[in-house]
C-alpha cells in the first residue's frame, strides 16, 4: 500500500498514478475487512476502486495525460476554446 502510494506520487504519467490509487483503495478495503469492518470495506471497494478511478480517468482524458505537459496553448489562443 505504501509502495503504491509512493508510486502514484512519483509517476509522471497520470494514468498510471490513477491506477495506483485504485490499488491503494483495493488494499485498503482488504485491511478494513481484516479490521472487522465489513460495511466500510464494501463502501471502499465500490467507491474507491470503481467510481473514483473512473472519474479521474475521464478528467485525464479531458485534460492532459503527463504531469509536465504544457500543450494546447496554441489551440486555446486561436480561439477554439
Amino acid at each position: 500500500m505504501i509502495g503504491a502510494a509512493v508510486y502514484s506520487i512519483r509517476q509522471k504519467d497520470l494514468l498510471y498514478a490513477t491506477i495506483a490509487t485504485g490499488i491503494i483503495s483495493l488494499v485498503l478495503s482488504v485491511l478494513f475487512y481484516l479490521l472487522q469492518a465489513p460495511d466500510v470495506a464494501l463502501t471502499e471497494a465500490a467507491i474507491g476502486v470503481a467510481l473514483t478511478t473512473i472519474i479521474f480517468i475521464i478528467t485525464i482524458r479531458n485534460t492532459v495525460r503527463y504531469e509536465d505537459e504544457h500543450d494546447n496553448k496554441e489551440k486555446f489562443k486561436s480561439g477554439v476554446k
Binding site: A5, T21, I24, I60, T63, V64, E67
Partner: peptide, 9 residues
C-alpha cells in the same frame, strides 16, 4: 491533478 490525487490519498 497531482494535488487532487494527493488529497484523495
Amino acid at each position: 491533478l497531482k494535488i487532487v490525487i494527493g488529497l484523495s490519498i
